[in-house]
Simulated assay, not measured.
Amino acid sequence: MSVFAASPSWLRVGIHAVRTATTVSALTLLVGYGAMSSVATPPPADPARRIDMSSGPLDAMMRENRCSFTGFDRDVIPSTAIIRTPDGATELVSFDRGWSVFLGEAAGDLVAVCLGPSRAG
């Protein structure tokens, strides 16, 4: 009769051990996935710092051409772009050329997309 009396306590210990192991495993996976996602995602780079140009000329070009580092709504189509050429020059170019740079079909780095000069007088 002692075997039957001991079974429920061993059963409880077994169930508790399985539940604890499952919880620890789930938490370990959660922390591991979080660590992998933070390691796999590079920190965002500030485009203004990345182009190594004094902010005055770039800011003026951005204002005059209504540019954005991050883009516009899907229904807004930019007309020009600012790129940085491989030799370090910053140029205002057509949107098509800027898109080619973005896709890697042309050399350089896309800095911003622009709507063009304001038509309001």
Rank of each mutant, 00 (worst) to 15 (best):
S54N: 14
L115N: 05
E105M: 08
R50N: 00
I15M: 15
M62T: 02
E64T: 04
A6E: 09
T22K: 04
R19S: 15
S37Q: 11
S2L: 14
P78S: 07
V93M: 01
Y33N: 14
D75K: 10
A5Y: 13
A26F: 10
F95V: 09
G98Q: 06
F72V: 03
L30G: 12
A17E: 09
S37E: 07
I15E: 14
M62Q: 02
L27H: 12
L110R: 04
M53S: 12
A26S: 03
F102K: 10
E105Q: 13
P47K: 04
F102L: 11
M1A: 14
P57G: 11
T85D: 02
G108P: 01
F102C: 07
S38F: 09
D87Q: 10
G104S: 01
S25D: 07
D109C: 00
M62E: 08
T41C: 05
H16K: 10
A107K: 01
E64P: 01
P78F: 13
L92F: 02
G98W: 01
T85Y: 01
R19F: 11
R74W: 02
L92N: 08
G71P: 03
A26Q: 04
F95Y: 10
V24A: 14
I77A: 13
A81V: 02
G56I: 15
D96K: 01
T90A: 05
A17L: 14
L30S: 12
G104H: 04
V76D: 08
E105G: 10
L115K: 11
T41H: 05
P117R: 15
V18S: 11
S68A: 07
G121S: 15
V3G: 11
M1C: 10
D75T: 09
P86K: 04
V31W: 12
A106P: 05
I82T: 03
V101N: 00
I82K: 06
D96Q: 03
R84Q: 09
V76I: 14
D52A: 15
W99K: 13
M53N: 07
D96P: 00
S54R: 12
T41R: 05
M53L: 14
D73T: 09
A21M: 07
A120M: 12
M36G: 11
D109Y: 00
A60S: 08
S118R: 14
L11H: 05
F102G: 04
P57F: 08
D46Y: 00
S79H: 03
A5E: 13
H16F: 15
V113Q: 05
G34W: 06
F4H: 13
V113T: 08
F72T: 03
P42S: 14
T23R: 09
L29D: 07
F95G: 06
T85Q: 00
F102S: 12
M61T: 06
W10F: 13
M1T: 10
A40Y: 01
G88C: 07
G108D: 00
A35K: 06
